[in-house]
C-alpha cells in the first residue's frame, strides 16, 4: 500500500507539472534538436534582436512603447523579468497542486515560494538551454550565449552562471517526470528562513524526497548515484540564486531600470 501511495504522489506531481508549465524539457529538446517544422528565430546581434522584438516579443516590449528607446540591455532585462513573472505564476499554481501544500499555513506557503521559485526557475531554465544559447518567447526564439555575453556589464554577467550550471545539470539527463519531483522538492523545503510550522513541511518534504529517490532508481537504473548528485544540485541552486539576487540588487542600484513588484517582493530581505 505504501508503494502505491508513493506512485500516486509521483503521478500527481508529474501531472501538475505538465499541466502548469508552458515549456517543458521534452518540448524544448524537440525544438533544440531541430525536430520541429518551425525552427526558432536566432537572436545573435543587435539587428536580429530588433527583428525579434518586432515580431516574437512585441507584446512584452512594445505594449506601452516605454522601452522602445531604451538600450538593448535594458530591454532584454525587462524581457527576463516578464518571463520570470510568468514562471513564478506557473510555479505558484504548480505548488498549489502538490498534495498537502495548500493545507500549509498561508504565511509558510508564501515563504516556501519566496525562497523556492528562483531555484526552481533556474533548474527548469536548464531544459531550454544548450551550450550555445537559450530558447525564448515560448520556444519561438533562440538567443545565443555569445550575444548575451557580449552585452555591457553588469548585464553580461546575468546569464553566464546559469549556462554553466545548466551544462552540468543537463549532463544528468533528467526527464520531465524527474524534474517534476525535483521542483516539488525544491519548493517543499523545511529550512527556509522564517517558517512557522517546520514539522508540517518536513513531513511533506520527506515524502517527496523519498518518492524522488525511488523514482530515480526506477527511471535511471544505470545511474545509482543520481539521487546524491541531485541533492548536491539543491545546494548549487541556492548559491546560484544568492549570486543572482546580489546582481539584481546591483542593477537596481546602478541602472535606471524598474523591477516588477512581484520580483521586488521576492528579492526583498531574501538573503
Amino acid at each position: 500500500p505504501q508503494l502505491a501511495d508513493q506512485k500516486t504522489l509521483a503521478r500527481q506531481i508529474y501531472e501538475a507539472y505538465l499541466k502548469n508549465f508552458n515549456m517543458n524539457k521534452a518540448k524544448a529538446r524537440t525544438i533544440l534538436t531541430g525536430k520541429t517544422s518551425n525552427p526558432p528565430f536566432v537572436v545573435h546581434d543587435m539587428e536580429t534582436l530588433q527583428l525579434a522584438e518586432q515580431t516574437l516579443v512585441a507584446k512584452m516590449v512594445g505594449s506601452a512603447g516605454a522601452l522602445k528607446d531604451r538600450e538593448a540591455e535594458v530591454r532584454i532585462f525587462h524581457c527576463c523579468q516578464c518571463t520570470s513573472v510568468e514562471t513564478v505564476t506557473e510555479l505558484t499554481e504548480f505548488a498549489k497542486s502538490v498534495p498537502g501544500f495548500s493545507s500549509l499555513d498561508l504565511n509558510d506557503q508564501v515563504t516556501l515560494l519566496k525562497y523556492g521559485v528562483y531555484e526552481a526557475l533556474f533548474a527548469m531554465l536548464a531544459s531550454s538551454m544548450n551550450k550555445d544559447g537559450l530558447l525564448v518567447a515560448y520556444g519561438s526564439g533562440f538567443i545565443t550565449r555569445e550575444f548575451l555575453k557580449s552585452l555591457r556589464r553588469p548585464f553580461s554577467d546575468m546569464m553566464e552562471p546559469k549556462f554553466q550550471f545548466a551544462m552540468k545539470f543537463n549532463a544528468l539527463e533528467l526527464d520531465d517526470s524527474d524534474l517534476a519531483l525535483f521542483v516539488a522538492a525544491i519548493i517543499c523545503c523545511g529550512d527556509r528562513p522564517g517558517l512557522v510550522n517546520v514539522s508540517h513541511i518536513e513531513v511533506m518534504q520527506e515524502s517527496i524526497v523519498r518518492v524522488l529517490q525511488l523514482h530515480l532508481l526506477a527511471n535511471h537504473p544505470d545511474d545509482t548515484f543520481l539521487f546524491p548528485k541531485l541533492l548536491q544540485k539543491l545546494a548549487d541552486l541556492r548559491q546560484l540564486v544568492t549570486e543572482h539576487a546580489q546582481l539584481v540588487q546591483e542593477i537596481k542600484k546602478t541602472e535606471d531600470t524598474s523591477l516588477h513588484p512581484l520580483l521586488q517582493e521576492i528579492y526583498r530581505d531574501m538573503y
Binding site: V88, T89, T92, K96, E265
Partner: peptide, 20 residues
C-alpha cells in the same frame, strides 16, 4: 503579509492575473 501582497494574492486566487 503586506510585504508579500502579490504572492498572497496568487496563492489565494488562481484567476487573478499578474500584470506584466
Amino acid at each position: 503579509k503586506e510585504k508579500h501582497k502579490i504572492l498572497h494574492r496568487l496563492l489565494q486566487n488562481s484567476t487573478s492575473p499578474v500584470e506584466l
